[in-house]
């Protein structure tokens, strides 16, 4: 593919490019075809209230606390040179994040694994080493690598370098994006992308701004351009009751998506509220709307509406 034609010097340099990720999920299914290795990039331009990966939002490294693993040994308190790990008068440890300098000493001494650094800098080489280990799964399943996050294209150089190297080694690539990035970032990455997984949250510019902190304009513009570009696209919609499950939105989305040519499928994902512990562990306020997971019947109904626009819809059954 295109990567083979890149100047040699460029390729060598790109392997040394580094970026920030917070997780690698292996044997992932439903994130593109076959069995996949999913790289979670750190940092996201949107602030969706229902985000279930709150650790993906900030571009900075964070300390995550897992209370159920803590054995209250207080080694962290002893180790912290900045007095950020503290003991309350009633003997409980807590983290004063305002004092934390992120030097990780507490994590180092927490053998229980109750303190975790979220976010690590990795090179393209590091990433590929892991990807290659799973290559036999791709071969038997038609799978490959998926960049997710966070927003991979917030780190366009790194994302592109990873994608380029994956294609050079003939791995299938998928890019999971929220779309809130400059078109230029897409242009850079697209030559090395086999499938785009594109999140659609709301159609109305205002509602979108209200829900995610950004208007839907750029996102929908980019999606239209992707449609013209010709790369296969799978749309992903997290259905959050009362927020984006109304008839009006679904119809508008159906109409818009139906007008694009390269949408392979629309995947409906039911909202869930299982990420509360993550917010707590990061010391952040839980912003997840207090609504229930949509019922199967409801998901089916939405699927029916969308497929009326000539779309292939994948919904839980």
């Amino acid at each position: 593919m295109g990567s083979n034609r890149s100047p040699g010097s460029h390729t060598v340099a790109s392997e040394a490019v580094t970026g920030w990720i917070f997780d690698v999920k292996r044997f992932a299914v439903h994130d593109g075809p076959g069995v996949r290795t999913v790289l979670f990039f750190k940092g996201c331009p949107l602030r969706c209230a229902w985000c279930h990966n709150p650790e993906s939002i900030s571009r900075n490294v964070q300390i995550m606390f897992h209370p159920q693993r803590c054995i209250a040994c207080l080694a962290c308190v002893e180790a912290c040179p900045h007095g950020a790990q503290q003991v309350t008068p009633d003997g409980e440890r807590w983290l004063d994040r305002s004092r934390c300098e992120l030097d990780r000493r507490c994590v180092e001494v927490c053998y229980a694994g109750a303190l975790e650094v979220v976010g690590r800098r990795v090179s393209v080489d590091d990433v590929l080493a892991q990807v290659r280990e799973d290559a036999s799964f791709y071969a038997t399943s038609g799978g490959g690598v998926t960049l997710s996050g966070g927003e991979p294209l917030l780190q366009p150089e790194f994302a592109t370098a990873v994608l380029r190297q994956c294609k050079a080694e003939e791995f299938h690539t998928a890019l999971d994006t929220c779309g809130q990035v400059r078109w230029k970032a897409f242009e850079q990455a697209l030559p090395f992308v086999d499938l785009v997984l594109y999140d659609v949250k709301h159609m109305s510019a205002e509602r979108h701004k209200h829900l995610t902190g950004a208007s839907s304009r750029l996102i929908l513009d980019n999606l239209r351009k992707l449609g013209d570009h010709g790369v296969p696209i799978e749309i992903r919609m997290v259905i959050v009751p009362t927020i984006n499950d109304g008839r009006e939105f679904i119809e508008a989305a159906g109409e818009f998506l139906g007008s694009l040519h390269t949408i392979e499928a629309v995947r409906l994902l039911p909202y869930h509220r299982l990420a509360g512990s993550k917010y707590l562990g990061l010391g952040q306020a839980n912003t997840m709307p207090e609504v229930e997971t949509p019922s199967l019947a409801h998901m089916q109904q939405i699927a029916g509406r969308l497929s009326a626009h000539g779309l292939k819809v994948i919904a839980p059954d």
């Binding site: 990966n53 997710s148 299982l274 199967l296």
Partner: peptide, 28 residues
């Protein structure tokens, strides 16, 4: 794993675990 999202079961609060178990029993 919940559609593209994963977490250690032990990292969930008891409430979330119960919620998830109901969900699994329900076949979601």
């Amino acid at each position: 794993r919940v559609t593209g999202w994963s977490v250690y079961f032990n990292a969930l609060s008891k409430e979330e675990q119960d919620q998830y178990i109901r969900r699994i029993a329900y076949g979601f």
